[in-house]
Design a protein around this nucleic acid. Structure first.
Ligand code: FES
Ligand code: FES
Lengths: 144, 144
DNA sequence: TTAGTATCGGATAATTTTGTCCATTATTAT
DNA sequence: ATAATAATGGACAAAATTATCCGATACTAA
């Protein structure tokens, strides 16, 4: 469904958010450990998220990654996914035609669009904060 | 969503089905042309579908690919997808945990499962014949 | 029986995705 | 100032996916 990079990205953002709620910045090492991902690769993904302004980063000791407290409840999952995987997953044709086009649709268009739209809706309505809270309350896990 | 191989595979099966309805066998060349896919790569994908008994193949002149007329209306899209991509797409965890587990779920589990189940339902209820008929009636397209 | 045709299967190549390594830069505390 | 710390950015490597090529195999028709 999502690329591995995107899966790591979402898990990372959710973890960072769960710590930002408590005003704690987290290091790359900590992130990779908590979401069980390869450290160096995770670094690249976080850099992308910093550039697309989903998360903040500060260098030096006491530095680390965080999410702006003001924005915390307004960041939707959609931003994370688009920053990493682009929007093909909820815009593109299910059968791989260059672009989804209802006027000259693939035979799966109608049914596929329903699923795709449901996914888009999920991504556009689910907040990172909402997911982070599940972690806090032990109702959700980022590794096993 | 689906791998490129799977997209080609579905398009190919739908095209083959649309011709099998008229008792016409089709060659690899014809398939690749009609679904606009790389011929040699498509060959590999069709071989997989032959081995998983989704389609039939015959060698030699007058040979080609086809689908058993009897099975035509009972073949679900799910079989094609599983033969090529496996079942991770509608069984796996959306955030990439080793396996989806409601007892120790990722924070997206509940919402993601809804989408995933809808996709699974689509794949399990949509028949290849149904899609092939859209092609016949000009209501669906396999290339553009 | 032979020539022609079409899939099969194995080897190989190109591309993309995933993953690693390390020197550099920015920041902080001493 | 200096040493320690943590992200950054670039080069590089491994693995998976996508794609090509070609000889072998099976079949048909003449
Ligand atoms: S054209 Fe294929 S999903 Fe819309
Ligand atoms: S545990 Fe992640 S989707 Fe079920």
């Amino acid at each position: 469904m999502f690329s591995k990079a995107c899966e790591y990205g979402i898990r990372a953002v959710v973890f960072i958010a769960s710590q930002s709620v408590q005003s704690r910045k987290v290091s790359l090492k900590e992130v990779a450990k908590e979401i069980d991902s390869p450290e160096s690769y995770t670094s690249k993904i976080l850099q992308k998220l910093v550039k697309s302004e989903v998360i903040l980063s500060e260098k030096g000791p006491t530095g680390g990654f965080s999410i702006d407290y003001q924005k915390l409840n307004s960041i939707k999952l959609e931003r994370v996914v688009v920053a990493i995987d682009g929007d093909q997953i909820f815009k593109g044709c299910g059968l791989g035609l260059k672009q989804c086009n209802a006027n000259m649709p693939c035979p799966l268009h109608d049914k596929f669009k329903e699923v795709r739209d449901k996914l888009q809706n999920l991504l556009e309505t689910t907040t990172v904060l909402e997911l982070a809270e599940k972690i806090e309350y032990g109702l959700g896990f980022l590794k096993r």
